[in-house]
């Protein structure tokens, strides 16, 4: 089957971000960027499906600035076959991203689209579900296991009550959770090879999607700071603190 994986370039998840003092957003200049962790799990899942004989072609797509090439190269080094960069300098809303991806789905007609469950910058957790709606395909979000069974897939999903297994027919949309697999670090020869794999760079305007934002971000502020606490010296002091808290709760 043919697999499409959508990947996003974000501020590296280990970076402690800084909110710009003027409230205009989060400082991304001069900050280390990398592939969104959830997208890495999505790429790994595609490559593993390929290795198990289920993925004839793996195409990765990223929407973002020219520099997003680097995350596509990472995915190609992990084992994807071909890359598409939809180039834009604008920060697009998830609905616009989903509409662009729907165009790619229409062109490529993949059996399976894999995405991350959420991007760790905007923490939206939207695009997979929106893409499923726009392409009228079934969805399995928050996947921690994907199995090909007959003409469809069985997906274990991580949900609030534990886990659940659902079966959906292909073509389908799946979003990856972190326990889906352990993403590989591409070995140097694979990194070298990635540079010779096809990578199409296409301007966003080519897709004819209305990208006008629907929401206005009035401002971005840092979260409220907590006041510094104290250290206690023994379990009995701690128990006294907890007991006082509990009786206060019960008084209310």
């Amino acid at each position: 089957m043919k697999i499409l994986v959508a990947i996003k370039r974000v501020v590296d998840h280990n970076v402690r971000i800084r909110v710009r003092p003027d409230g205009s957003g989060v400082e991304t200049q001069g900050v280390r960027m990398s592939m969104n962790p959830f997208c890495k799990h999505a790429v790994e899942a595609a490559v593993q499906l390929g290795e198990a004989g289920h993925g004839d072609e793996i195409v990765v797509v990223s929407i973002g600035p020219k520099l997003a090439n680097d995350v596509i190269l990472t995915a190609l080094a992990m084992g994807a076959h071909r890359g598409i960069l939809i180039e834009t300098e604008a920060e697009l809303e998830t609905l616009a991203i989903a509409k662009l991806l729907a165009k790619v789905v229409a062109e490529e007609d993949p059996d399976l689209v894999l995405l991350g469950k959420q991007a760790v910058d905007d923490d939206s957790n939207h695009v997979g579900q929106m893409l499923a709606a726009l392409t009228d395909r079934p969805q399995a979000t928050f996947a921690s296991e994907i199995k090909v069974v007959g003409q469809g897939i069985e997906v274990v999903r991580e949900v609030d009550s534990g886990r659940e297994t659902i079966a959906i027919p292909l073509p389908a949309i799946v979003t990856a959770d972190l326990r889906l697999n352990t993403p590989r670090n591409a070995a140097l020869p694979m990194v070298m090879k990635a540079r010779s794999k096809p990578l199409a760079v296409r301007p966003v305007a080519e897709f004819g999607v209305d990208l006008t934002p629907r929401l206005t971000i009035e401002k971005v502020s840092p979260p409220a700071e907590r006041v510094a606490g104290r250290t206690v010296g023994s379990a009995s002091e701690l128990a006294a603190f907890i007991a006082a808290e509990v009786s206060q709760m019960e008084a209310l």
Binding site: V11, I17, V26, D123, S124, L215, T216, E218, P222, P223
Partner: peptide, 28 residues
């Protein structure tokens, strides 16, 4: 999504970057 404060009929707060920043969003 993930609204943590309703500021008015069309204005909301939502955390981003794992709660290390908070967006004030207005939805027209």
């Amino acid at each position: 999504t993930d609204v943590v404060r309703v500021l008015g009929p069309t204005r909301f707060e939502r955390p981003i970057y794992a709660g290390n920043a908070v967006q004030t969003v207005s939805d027209g």
